[in-house]
Design a protein around this nucleic acid. Structure first.
Lengths: 192, 192
DNA sequence: CTCGCTTGTCTAGCGGTGCTAGGATCGACT
DNA sequence: AGTCGATCCTAGCACCGCTAGACAAGCGAG
Protein backbone atom coordinates (compact mmCIF):
# COMPACT_ATOMS: atom_id res chain seq x y z
CA UNK A 1 0.00 0.00 0.00
CA UNK A 2 2.91 2.30 0.51
CA UNK A 3 3.43 2.74 -3.18
CA UNK A 4 -0.12 3.76 -3.75
CA UNK A 5 0.06 6.18 -0.83
CA UNK A 6 3.17 7.78 -2.22
CA UNK A 7 1.52 8.22 -5.60
CA UNK A 8 -1.47 9.70 -3.88
CA UNK A 9 0.76 12.17 -2.09
CA UNK A 10 2.59 13.09 -5.27
CA UNK A 11 -0.68 13.58 -7.04
CA UNK A 12 -2.07 15.81 -4.31
CA UNK A 13 1.15 17.78 -4.26
CA UNK A 14 1.00 18.33 -7.97
CA UNK A 15 -2.59 19.47 -7.72
CA UNK A 16 -1.58 22.06 -5.14
CA UNK A 17 1.24 23.07 -7.45
CA UNK A 18 -1.18 23.61 -10.32
CA UNK A 19 -3.51 25.75 -8.24
CA UNK A 20 -0.69 27.76 -6.68
CA UNK A 21 0.93 28.33 -10.06
CA UNK A 22 -2.34 29.39 -11.63
CA UNK A 23 -2.90 31.85 -8.84
CA UNK A 24 0.62 33.19 -9.05
CA UNK A 25 0.43 33.60 -12.79
CA UNK A 26 -2.96 35.27 -12.55
CA UNK A 27 -1.74 37.75 -9.95
CA UNK A 28 1.36 38.50 -11.94
CA UNK A 29 -0.09 38.90 -15.41
CA UNK A 30 -3.87 38.62 -15.08
CA UNK A 31 -6.20 35.72 -15.77
CA UNK A 32 -5.95 36.23 -19.52
CA UNK A 33 -2.34 35.14 -19.29
CA UNK A 34 -3.32 31.92 -17.54
CA UNK A 35 -3.54 29.64 -20.54
CA UNK A 36 -3.34 25.90 -20.24
CA UNK A 37 -0.11 25.93 -22.24
CA UNK A 38 1.64 28.48 -20.08
CA UNK A 39 0.37 26.82 -16.94
CA UNK A 40 1.58 23.44 -18.12
CA UNK A 41 4.97 24.85 -18.98
CA UNK A 42 5.34 26.47 -15.56
CA UNK A 43 4.59 23.28 -13.69
CA UNK A 44 6.89 21.46 -16.11
CA UNK A 45 4.30 19.02 -17.34
CA UNK A 46 2.37 18.80 -20.56
CA UNK A 47 -1.13 20.16 -20.98
CA UNK A 48 -3.07 16.91 -20.66
CA UNK A 49 -1.78 16.49 -17.11
CA UNK A 50 -3.91 19.47 -16.13
CA UNK A 51 -6.95 17.62 -17.40
CA UNK A 52 -6.21 14.60 -15.28
CA UNK A 53 -6.65 16.83 -12.22
CA UNK A 54 -9.34 19.23 -13.38
CA UNK A 55 -12.13 19.05 -15.89
CA UNK A 56 -10.90 22.22 -17.50
CA UNK A 57 -9.74 25.74 -16.94
CA UNK A 58 -12.90 26.78 -15.13
CA UNK A 59 -12.33 24.14 -12.46
CA UNK A 60 -8.83 25.46 -11.90
CA UNK A 61 -10.29 28.92 -11.42
CA UNK A 62 -12.76 27.38 -9.01
CA UNK A 63 -9.96 25.78 -7.02
CA UNK A 64 -8.17 29.11 -6.75
CA UNK A 65 -11.44 30.67 -5.61
CA UNK A 66 -11.90 28.11 -2.86
CA UNK A 67 -8.41 28.72 -1.55
CA UNK A 68 -9.05 32.43 -1.64
CA UNK A 69 -12.28 32.02 0.30
CA UNK A 70 -10.53 30.12 3.06
CA UNK A 71 -7.86 32.77 3.21
CA UNK A 72 -10.33 35.61 3.25
CA UNK A 73 -12.39 34.03 6.00
CA UNK A 74 -9.28 33.72 8.13
CA UNK A 75 -8.27 37.31 7.46
CA UNK A 76 -11.72 38.60 8.33
CA UNK A 77 -11.86 36.64 11.59
CA UNK A 78 -8.37 37.74 12.57
CA UNK A 79 -9.24 41.38 12.00
CA UNK A 80 -12.58 41.36 13.78
CA UNK A 81 -11.41 39.38 16.78
CA UNK A 82 -8.69 41.95 17.36
CA UNK A 83 -11.19 44.81 17.48
CA UNK A 84 -13.18 46.01 20.50
CA UNK A 85 -16.86 46.81 20.18
CA UNK A 86 -19.29 46.42 17.29
CA UNK A 87 -18.32 49.57 15.44
CA UNK A 88 -14.61 48.80 15.45
CA UNK A 89 -15.35 45.25 14.38
CA UNK A 90 -17.49 46.29 11.43
CA UNK A 91 -14.97 48.89 10.33
CA UNK A 92 -12.15 46.38 10.59
CA UNK A 93 -14.22 43.88 8.64
CA UNK A 94 -14.91 46.31 5.83
CA UNK A 95 -11.33 47.48 5.62
CA UNK A 96 -9.99 43.94 5.64
CA UNK A 97 -12.41 42.86 2.95
CA UNK A 98 -11.48 45.71 0.64
CA UNK A 99 -7.84 45.26 1.44
CA UNK A 100 -8.02 41.61 0.50
CA UNK A 101 -9.69 42.46 -2.79
CA UNK A 102 -7.06 45.05 -3.57
CA UNK A 103 -4.08 42.92 -2.67
CA UNK A 104 -5.34 39.77 -4.37
CA UNK A 105 -7.25 41.01 -7.38
CA UNK A 106 -6.88 37.80 -9.34
CA UNK A 107 -8.08 35.66 -6.46
CA UNK A 108 -10.95 38.04 -5.86
CA UNK A 109 -11.90 37.79 -9.52
CA UNK A 110 -11.79 34.02 -9.33
CA UNK A 111 -14.15 34.15 -6.36
CA UNK A 112 -16.70 36.65 -7.58
CA UNK A 113 -16.20 37.77 -11.14
CA UNK A 114 -15.14 34.76 -13.13
CA UNK A 115 -17.00 31.57 -13.72
CA UNK A 116 -15.35 28.94 -11.58
CA UNK A 117 -18.27 26.58 -11.90
CA UNK A 118 -19.09 26.95 -8.21
CA UNK A 119 -22.52 26.93 -6.66
CA UNK A 120 -23.49 29.85 -4.47
CA UNK A 121 -26.21 30.38 -1.95
CA UNK A 122 -27.33 26.80 -2.35
CA UNK A 123 -27.12 23.54 -0.51
CA UNK A 124 -24.19 22.23 -2.46
CA UNK A 125 -22.17 25.39 -2.05
CA UNK A 126 -18.62 24.35 -1.14
CA UNK A 127 -17.72 24.71 2.53
CA UNK A 128 -15.06 27.44 2.14
CA UNK A 129 -17.57 29.75 0.48
CA UNK A 130 -20.19 29.13 3.12
CA UNK A 131 -17.57 29.73 5.77
CA UNK A 132 -16.43 33.03 4.27
CA UNK A 133 -20.03 34.19 4.29
CA UNK A 134 -20.33 32.96 7.86
CA UNK A 135 -17.32 35.06 8.81
CA UNK A 136 -19.13 38.12 7.49
CA UNK A 137 -22.32 37.14 9.29
CA UNK A 138 -20.59 36.74 12.65
CA UNK A 139 -19.68 40.40 12.73
CA UNK A 140 -22.49 41.93 10.70
CA UNK A 141 -25.29 39.98 12.32
CA UNK A 142 -24.94 41.90 15.55
CA UNK A 143 -25.41 45.29 13.87
CA UNK A 144 -28.36 44.42 11.65
CA UNK A 145 -30.75 46.33 13.87
CA UNK A 146 -34.18 45.37 15.15
CA UNK A 147 -36.57 43.75 12.76
CA UNK A 148 -33.96 43.15 10.09
CA UNK A 149 -32.97 39.60 9.32
CA UNK A 150 -29.22 39.29 9.99
CA UNK A 151 -28.72 37.16 6.88
CA UNK A 152 -30.40 39.71 4.68
CA UNK A 153 -28.38 42.46 6.30
CA UNK A 154 -25.16 40.54 5.75
CA UNK A 155 -26.01 40.03 2.11
CA UNK A 156 -26.72 43.69 1.60
CA UNK A 157 -23.63 44.90 3.40
CA UNK A 158 -21.54 42.38 1.53
CA UNK A 159 -22.98 43.55 -1.79
CA UNK A 160 -22.02 47.11 -0.92
CA UNK A 161 -18.47 46.06 -0.13
CA UNK A 162 -18.33 44.02 -3.30
CA UNK A 163 -19.49 47.00 -5.32
CA UNK A 164 -16.84 49.22 -3.81
CA UNK A 165 -14.17 46.61 -4.39
CA UNK A 166 -14.96 45.96 -8.02
CA UNK A 167 -15.74 49.49 -9.10
CA UNK A 168 -12.64 50.85 -7.43
CA UNK A 169 -10.36 48.29 -8.97
CA UNK A 170 -11.90 48.63 -12.41
CA UNK A 171 -11.15 52.35 -12.30
CA UNK A 172 -14.82 53.23 -12.09
CA UNK A 173 -14.35 55.09 -8.80
CA UNK A 174 -11.58 57.52 -7.89
CA UNK A 175 -9.24 55.59 -5.61
CA UNK A 176 -8.41 58.38 -3.22
CA UNK A 177 -11.62 58.51 -1.21
CA UNK A 178 -11.87 54.80 -0.48
CA UNK A 179 -11.56 55.26 3.26
CA UNK A 180 -14.27 57.91 3.40
CA UNK A 181 -16.64 55.69 1.47
CA UNK A 182 -16.03 52.91 3.97
CA UNK A 183 -16.79 55.21 6.88
CA UNK A 184 -19.96 56.39 5.21
CA UNK A 185 -21.07 52.83 4.59
CA UNK A 186 -20.36 51.63 8.10
CA UNK A 187 -21.82 54.71 9.74
CA UNK A 188 -25.08 54.51 7.84
CA UNK A 189 -25.73 50.81 7.33
CA UNK A 190 -24.74 49.41 10.70
CA UNK A 191 -26.99 49.95 13.69
CA UNK A 192 -24.62 50.57 16.56
CA UNK B 1 -20.81 65.95 -52.54
CA UNK B 2 -24.04 64.01 -52.47
CA UNK B 3 -22.27 60.79 -53.19
CA UNK B 4 -19.95 61.23 -50.28
CA UNK B 5 -22.85 62.07 -48.02
CA UNK B 6 -24.70 58.96 -49.03
CA UNK B 7 -21.66 56.83 -48.32
CA UNK B 8 -21.31 58.54 -44.99
CA UNK B 9 -24.90 57.68 -44.14
CA UNK B 10 -24.49 54.09 -45.23
CA UNK B 11 -21.38 53.80 -43.18
CA UNK B 12 -23.04 55.23 -40.08
CA UNK B 13 -25.99 52.93 -40.57
CA UNK B 14 -23.78 49.92 -40.81
CA UNK B 15 -21.96 50.93 -37.67
CA UNK B 16 -25.26 51.09 -35.82
CA UNK B 17 -26.11 47.69 -37.25
CA UNK B 18 -22.87 46.25 -35.91
CA UNK B 19 -23.45 47.60 -32.43
CA UNK B 20 -27.10 46.58 -32.37
CA UNK B 21 -26.27 43.10 -33.60
CA UNK B 22 -23.48 42.69 -31.08
CA UNK B 23 -25.84 43.71 -28.32
CA UNK B 24 -28.58 41.41 -29.53
CA UNK B 25 -26.24 38.48 -29.84
CA UNK B 26 -24.76 39.15 -26.41
CA UNK B 27 -28.19 39.30 -24.79
CA UNK B 28 -29.27 36.14 -26.53
CA UNK B 29 -26.25 33.94 -26.00
CA UNK B 30 -23.82 35.84 -23.80
CA UNK B 31 -20.71 37.80 -24.68
CA UNK B 32 -18.69 34.63 -25.16
CA UNK B 33 -20.81 33.91 -28.19
CA UNK B 34 -20.05 37.31 -29.68
CA UNK B 35 -17.12 36.38 -31.88
CA UNK B 36 -16.00 38.47 -34.78
CA UNK B 37 -16.89 35.67 -37.14
CA UNK B 38 -20.41 35.21 -35.89
CA UNK B 39 -20.95 38.95 -35.74
CA UNK B 40 -19.72 39.36 -39.30
CA UNK B 41 -21.98 36.60 -40.49
CA UNK B 42 -25.02 38.15 -38.83
CA UNK B 43 -24.49 41.53 -40.42
CA UNK B 44 -23.79 39.75 -43.71
CA UNK B 45 -20.33 41.14 -44.18
CA UNK B 46 -16.91 39.64 -43.79
CA UNK B 47 -14.81 40.00 -40.66
CA UNK B 48 -12.45 42.74 -41.87
CA UNK B 49 -15.40 45.09 -42.28
CA UNK B 50 -15.74 45.15 -38.49
CA UNK B 51 -12.19 46.39 -38.27
CA UNK B 52 -12.86 49.28 -40.59
CA UNK B 53 -15.36 50.57 -38.05
CA UNK B 54 -13.76 49.52 -34.77
CA UNK B 55 -10.23 48.86 -33.66
CA UNK B 56 -11.27 45.49 -32.36
CA UNK B 57 -13.75 43.59 -30.28
CA UNK B 58 -13.17 45.68 -27.18
CA UNK B 59 -14.22 48.84 -29.00
CA UNK B 60 -17.43 47.16 -30.06
CA UNK B 61 -18.10 46.30 -26.43
CA UNK B 62 -17.37 49.91 -25.58
CA UNK B 63 -19.88 51.10 -28.15
CA UNK B 64 -22.55 48.84 -26.68
CA UNK B 65 -21.69 50.18 -23.25
CA UNK B 66 -22.13 53.78 -24.35
CA UNK B 67 -25.51 53.06 -25.82
CA UNK B 68 -26.48 51.30 -22.63
CA UNK B 69 -25.38 54.26 -20.54
CA UNK B 70 -27.56 56.62 -22.52
CA UNK B 71 -30.48 54.27 -22.17
CA UNK B 72 -29.96 53.79 -18.47
CA UNK B 73 -29.70 57.52 -17.82
CA UNK B 74 -33.01 58.04 -19.59
CA UNK B 75 -34.67 55.23 -17.65
CA UNK B 76 -33.42 56.59 -14.33
CA UNK B 77 -34.61 60.12 -15.08
CA UNK B 78 -37.99 58.87 -16.25
CA UNK B 79 -38.47 56.88 -13.07
CA UNK B 80 -37.35 59.57 -10.65
CA UNK B 81 -39.25 62.38 -12.30
CA UNK B 82 -42.45 60.37 -11.94
CA UNK B 83 -41.98 59.96 -8.17
CA UNK B 84 -43.01 62.39 -5.43
CA UNK B 85 -40.67 63.16 -2.58
CA UNK B 86 -37.06 62.19 -1.93
CA UNK B 87 -37.77 58.75 -0.54
CA UNK B 88 -39.96 57.69 -3.42
CA UNK B 89 -37.40 59.06 -5.85
CA UNK B 90 -34.51 57.15 -4.30
CA UNK B 91 -36.53 53.94 -4.15
CA UNK B 92 -37.60 54.34 -7.74
CA UNK B 93 -34.00 55.02 -8.72
CA UNK B 94 -32.71 51.90 -7.02
CA UNK B 95 -35.44 49.72 -8.43
CA UNK B 96 -34.97 51.06 -11.93
CA UNK B 97 -31.22 50.58 -11.74
CA UNK B 98 -31.50 46.97 -10.64
CA UNK B 99 -34.27 46.35 -13.10
CA UNK B 100 -32.12 47.64 -15.93
CA UNK B 101 -29.26 45.40 -14.89
CA UNK B 102 -31.53 42.39 -14.73
CA UNK B 103 -33.26 43.01 -18.03
CA UNK B 104 -30.11 43.88 -19.94
CA UNK B 105 -27.42 41.74 -18.40
CA UNK B 106 -25.15 41.82 -21.44
CA UNK B 107 -25.33 45.57 -21.74
CA UNK B 108 -24.73 45.92 -18.03
CA UNK B 109 -21.68 43.69 -18.35
CA UNK B 110 -20.40 45.77 -21.22
CA UNK B 111 -20.75 48.88 -19.07
CA UNK B 112 -19.25 47.67 -15.82
CA UNK B 113 -17.76 44.21 -16.00
CA UNK B 114 -16.03 43.89 -19.33
CA UNK B 115 -13.18 45.87 -20.70
CA UNK B 116 -14.61 48.20 -23.29
CA UNK B 117 -11.53 50.37 -23.29
CA UNK B 118 -13.45 53.25 -21.76
CA UNK B 119 -12.13 55.80 -19.33
CA UNK B 120 -14.02 56.28 -16.09
CA UNK B 121 -13.99 58.99 -13.47
CA UNK B 122 -11.61 61.01 -15.56
CA UNK B 123 -11.64 64.04 -17.78
CA UNK B 124 -11.83 62.09 -20.99
CA UNK B 125 -14.69 59.94 -19.79
CA UNK B 126 -17.23 59.75 -22.61
CA UNK B 127 -20.28 61.95 -22.20
CA UNK B 128 -22.90 59.17 -21.88
CA UNK B 129 -21.06 57.70 -18.89
CA UNK B 130 -20.75 61.05 -17.19
CA UNK B 131 -24.40 61.67 -17.85
CA UNK B 132 -25.50 58.36 -16.37
CA UNK B 133 -23.57 59.18 -13.24
CA UNK B 134 -25.12 62.65 -13.28
CA UNK B 135 -28.56 61.04 -13.39
CA UNK B 136 -27.73 59.16 -10.22
CA UNK B 137 -26.34 62.30 -8.60
CA UNK B 138 -29.46 64.35 -9.32
CA UNK B 139 -31.56 62.11 -7.10
CA UNK B 140 -29.01 60.89 -4.61
CA UNK B 141 -27.36 64.25 -3.99
CA UNK B 142 -30.39 65.52 -2.12
CA UNK B 143 -30.36 62.66 0.39
CA UNK B 144 -26.64 62.62 1.15
CA UNK B 145 -27.18 64.21 4.54
CA UNK B 146 -25.32 67.04 6.24
CA UNK B 147 -21.58 67.04 6.03
CA UNK B 148 -21.40 64.34 3.42
CA UNK B 149 -20.19 65.24 -0.03
CA UNK B 150 -22.98 64.43 -2.50
CA UNK B 151 -20.53 63.01 -5.02
CA UNK B 152 -19.02 60.68 -2.47
CA UNK B 153 -22.47 59.65 -1.37
CA UNK B 154 -23.52 58.97 -4.94
CA UNK B 155 -20.45 56.84 -5.52
CA UNK B 156 -21.10 54.81 -2.40
CA UNK B 157 -24.77 54.29 -3.09
CA UNK B 158 -24.02 53.39 -6.66
CA UNK B 159 -21.42 50.86 -5.54
CA UNK B 160 -24.00 49.23 -3.28
CA UNK B 161 -26.46 48.97 -6.16
CA UNK B 162 -23.75 47.62 -8.40
CA UNK B 163 -22.88 44.99 -5.83
CA UNK B 164 -26.48 43.90 -5.52
CA UNK B 165 -26.88 43.79 -9.30
CA UNK B 166 -23.79 41.73 -10.00
CA UNK B 167 -24.00 39.34 -7.07
CA UNK B 168 -27.66 38.67 -7.68
CA UNK B 169 -27.19 37.97 -11.34
CA UNK B 170 -24.13 35.80 -10.78
CA UNK B 171 -26.18 33.63 -8.45
CA UNK B 172 -24.22 34.74 -5.43
CA UNK B 173 -27.34 36.06 -3.69
CA UNK B 174 -30.72 34.36 -3.41
CA UNK B 175 -32.95 36.16 -5.89
CA UNK B 176 -36.11 36.18 -3.85
CA UNK B 177 -35.29 38.88 -1.34
CA UNK B 178 -34.12 41.51 -3.81
CA UNK B 179 -36.87 43.95 -2.91
CA UNK B 180 -36.19 43.72 0.81
CA UNK B 181 -32.51 44.38 0.24
CA UNK B 182 -33.39 47.49 -1.73
CA UNK B 183 -35.61 48.75 1.05
CA UNK B 184 -32.91 48.12 3.59
CA UNK B 185 -30.37 49.96 1.51
CA UNK B 186 -32.59 52.97 0.85
CA UNK B 187 -33.84 53.14 4.42
CA UNK B 188 -30.39 53.11 5.92
CA UNK B 189 -28.19 54.95 3.44
CA UNK B 190 -30.42 57.82 2.45
CA UNK B 191 -31.02 60.69 4.87
CA UNK B 192 -34.66 61.57 4.42
C1' DC C 1 -19.34 55.81 -73.35
C1' DT C 2 -15.03 54.29 -71.97
C1' DC C 3 -11.12 54.24 -69.25
C1' DG C 4 -8.11 54.69 -65.07
C1' DC C 5 -8.18 54.94 -60.29
C1' DT C 6 -9.72 55.09 -55.75
C1' DT C 7 -12.35 52.92 -52.45
C1' DG C 8 -14.19 49.20 -50.34
C1' DT C 9 -14.66 44.20 -49.61
C1' DC C 10 -13.33 39.46 -49.48
C1' DT C 11 -10.37 35.28 -49.28
C1' DA C 12 -6.89 33.23 -46.96
C1' DG C 13 -3.91 32.81 -43.30
C1' DC C 14 -1.15 33.81 -38.81
C1' DG C 15 -0.44 32.79 -34.11
C1' DG C 16 -3.01 31.87 -30.33
C1' DT C 17 -6.86 29.44 -27.39
C1' DG C 18 -9.19 25.18 -24.68
C1' DC C 19 -9.31 20.56 -25.04
C1' DT C 20 -8.51 15.42 -26.52
C1' DA C 21 -7.25 10.94 -29.00
C1' DG C 22 -3.81 7.62 -29.30
C1' DG C 23 0.78 6.04 -28.97
C1' DA C 24 5.08 5.61 -26.18
C1' DT C 25 7.35 4.96 -21.85
C1' DC C 26 8.12 4.00 -17.34
C1' DG C 27 7.67 1.55 -13.06
C1' DA C 28 5.34 -1.88 -9.99
C1' DC C 29 4.12 -6.63 -9.13
C1' DT C 30 4.55 -11.72 -10.22
C1' DA D 1 13.08 -10.74 -15.45
C1' DG D 2 9.23 -10.12 -17.92
C1' DT D 3 4.55 -8.55 -18.30
C1' DC D 4 1.20 -5.42 -17.91
C1' DG D 5 -1.10 -1.39 -16.38
C1' DA D 6 -0.84 3.37 -15.08
C1' DT D 7 1.00 7.75 -16.59
C1' DC D 8 2.51 11.10 -19.58
C1' DC D 9 3.49 13.32 -24.03
C1' DT D 10 3.10 14.33 -29.04
C1' DA D 11 0.15 15.82 -32.30
C1' DG D 12 -3.94 17.63 -33.71
C1' DC D 13 -8.94 19.47 -33.68
C1' DA D 14 -11.99 23.47 -34.02
C1' DC D 15 -12.21 27.82 -32.71
C1' DC D 16 -10.55 32.63 -31.39
C1' DG D 17 -8.99 37.87 -32.62
C1' DC D 18 -6.87 40.06 -36.10
C1' DT D 19 -4.51 41.33 -40.79
C1' DA D 20 -2.09 41.22 -45.48
C1' DG D 21 -2.91 41.24 -50.08
C1' DA D 22 -5.80 40.07 -54.05
C1' DC D 23 -9.86 41.52 -56.23
C1' DA D 24 -14.02 44.00 -57.82
C1' DA D 25 -17.17 47.77 -57.89
C1' DG D 26 -18.21 52.43 -58.53
C1' DC D 27 -16.57 57.02 -59.07
C1' DG D 28 -14.82 61.20 -61.99
C1' DA D 29 -12.40 62.60 -66.20
C1' DG D 30 -11.81 62.71 -71.03
Amino acid sequence: MSVQERKERERAGRERLIVATARELAEQQGWDAVTTRRLAERIEYSQPVLYSHFRGKREIIGAVALGGATEMAAALRAATSAADGPRARVTALARTYLDFAERNPAVYDAMFQLDGGLAFAQEDTPEPLKDAFAALWETLGEVAGDGVHPGLFTETFWAALHGLATLTRAGRLPPGDAERRVELLVGRLAVL
